[in-house]
């Protein structure tokens, strides 16, 4: 464990908690893409199956359980409890265009052709593009609530910190995982446009609005 991975995990946890609290407290999921949240629940489910097979540390196990629990709770709030506030008309990204290619690629490019490894690879590739429905929805509505931008900021920051963690681990431990690194770079690049808007607008107290 190094400081970059720890702050990355805490940034990820912060994002997940911010979103869950935003929906719970405002009793509304307006502006939130339910499709992205379903994809994240799929990411955690397929990646953390090793909860049943391997014990790494209390930290590792408890964080995985928290991530899975919060992501399913968020999906439940969006599609069940606060379904009336779900903005289905703007959450129209065709997720099959993400899941099918990612599924195919995880069979073609992986470290080991075993079920757990293919599911892990699928989850790594899926996480890289899981935010696209959310970013697409914001581009369609032309704006985002400030709390939603903070959620996206911490979510994008987490994988950027993981990139630094992988540099650190390669240098100090000779450890690297090319699949995770390439997917992590793609994932972080997808946030660059948002990061620019976040820094130039939200941090200056303005509302995030895109030229519609």
């Amino acid at each position: 464990m190094n400081i970059f991975r720890l702050t990355g995990d805490l940034s990820h946890l912060a994002a997940i908690i911010i979103l869950l609290l935003k929906i719970w407290k405002s009793r509304s999921c307006a502006g939130i893409s339910g499709k992205s949240q379903i994809l994240f629940a799929m990411v955690f489910t397929t990646r953390y199956l090793d909860l049943l097979t391997a014990y790494i540390s209390l930290y590792n196990t408890s964080m995985k359980i928290i991530y899975i629990g919060c992501s399913y709770a968020t999906v439940y709030l969006i599609y069940a409890k606060f379904k009336a506030t779900y903005d289905g008309n703007h959450d129209t990204f065709r997720v099959e265009f993400l899941v099918v290619p990612v599924g195919g690629l995880s069979f073609l490019v992986n470290h080991d052709f075993s079920p757990l490894e293919i599911l892990w690879t699928f989850s790594i590739y899926l996480e890289a593009v899981a935010i696209l429905p959310q970013l697409f929805m914001i581009s369609k509505t032309g704006e985002a609530e400030t709390i939603t931008t903070h959620y996206l900021f911490f979510l994008g920051l987490y994988r950027a910190l993981y990139l630094i963690n992988w540099v650190w681990r390669f240098y100090f431990e000779g450890f690297f995982d090319m699949i995770a690194i390439v997917a992590g770079v793609v994932q972080t690049i997808l946030y660059c446009d948002f990061f620019y808007l976040y820094v130039t607008k939200v941090l200056k107290g303005k509302k995030l609005s895109l030229p519609a």
Binding site: R5, D9, H12, D50, A54, I56, S57, N60, M63, K64, Y67, H111, D112, W120, Y162, N165, G174, F175, F176, D177, M178, A180
Partner: peptide, 10 residues
């Protein structure tokens, strides 16, 4: 390239 596929990350 020393590649170890350790799954100790979240």
């Amino acid at each position: 390239w020393d590649h170890i596929n350790r799954k100790d990350e979240l």
